[in-house]
Simulated assay, not measured.
Amino acid sequence: MKFAFLFLKFLSRFPVATLQKWARVFGFLCYWLVVPRRKVGQRNLALCFPEKSAAEREQILREHFYHMALLVLEYGRYWYADAGSLKAAVRYQDKEILDKALANKEKVILLYPHFTAFEAAVYALNQDVALTSVYSHQKNVELDKQILHGRHRYNNVFLIGRTEGLRAIIKHIRNSDAPFLYLPDQDFGAKDSIFVDFMGVQAATITGLSRIAKMTDAKVIPAIPTRQADGTVILRFYPAWDNFPSEDVMADTQRMNDFIAERIREQPEQYYWLHKRFKTRPEGEVSVY
């Protein structure tokens, strides 16, 4: 593990353009060698894009492996590179939406789905805005220590352990001005989840966005990072949602999934397809993997 950290530190010296070239090679190799994850990606894409041909879905997946490879190779930059270079690689779009809400002392939840440039964007944003987020501790102690060190490099973030639960999240949001960075689009199991549509498939989805917004009177402002051809990233902020939360938790959760699905269709190769998003099935259904 220490060798891996040294290698990432070595990579942090190189510009993004160089890492992009290496990511093409690394991504190609991973596509062929990491067979279990390739199969997960193929299955996810088949479920979510049945209207596309097998060749079209395969092209998306190959490109996705490139973006995932670039994400991994860039961790050295996130942890070790000059903060100014990280900031320069990210451009904001419509950030005044967030700035206005914070200036008005409003509580904010940043809806932040798992697109592959999410780390690059957040390491820039956290230089300008204090953030709160949930953190899942890693089984490997050295990796856990390094990730936490990286997260805290600006002394401008508060991390809540996933095992601390909803109560700790609510308490912190109520007592802090920092936006809550919310990444809900993974399968966390049946507990605290309901089944709603996600790109045509019933998916176990946590209801936290609606519940947290209601309990903290927070505005939901989506933020979507998009990697550009030159390696830079655009972080786009969307208008705060009107009439959210409603009195219908299921409708609120469906609204969230529908929004994420719309963004995925705009850049399918940059969404995180290697996670078993549909692992938890409604009672009586067989596994899709």
Rank of each mutant, 00 (worst) to 15 (best):
L125Q: 09
N126Q: 13
N126T: 13
N126L: 09
N126R: 10
N126I: 14
V129A: 04
V129P: 00
V129E: 02
A130Y: 02
T132M: 15
S133K: 04
S133Y: 06
H137W: 00
K139F: 08
K139H: 13
K139A: 14
K139D: 13
N140C: 10
N140G: 08
N140M: 06
E142V: 14
L143F: 15
Q146M: 13
R151D: 07
R151N: 06
R153A: 09
Y154H: 12
Y154G: 07
V157C: 10
L159I: 11
L159Y: 07
L159C: 14
I160L: 13
I160A: 11
G161A: 15
G161N: 15
E164S: 15
G165W: 03
L166E: 09
I169F: 06
I170T: 08
K171P: 10
H172F: 11
H172T: 14
H172W: 10
S176H: 07
D177I: 10
L183N: 01
L183V: 15
Q186R: 07
F188V: 14
G189K: 09
K191I: 11
K191T: 12
F195H: 05
F195A: 09
V196W: 03
D197R: 09
F198W: 02
G200K: 10
V201C: 03
Q202F: 02
T207K: 11
L209K: 01
K214W: 10
K214Y: 11
M215Y: 01
T216M: 10
D217N: 15
K219C: 02
I221M: 04
I221E: 02
P222R: 04
I224R: 03
A229T: 13
D230C: 04
V233Q: 06
V233P: 01
R236E: 12
Y238S: 07
Y238A: 07
P239Y: 04
W241Q: 01
W241E: 01
W241V: 06
D242P: 00
D242A: 13
Q254C: 00
R255A: 08
M256Y: 01
N257L: 05
N257C: 07
N257E: 05
I260L: 07
I264K: 02
R265H: 05
E266T: 09
E266P: 00
Q267D: 11
Q267M: 11
P268A: 13
P268N: 12
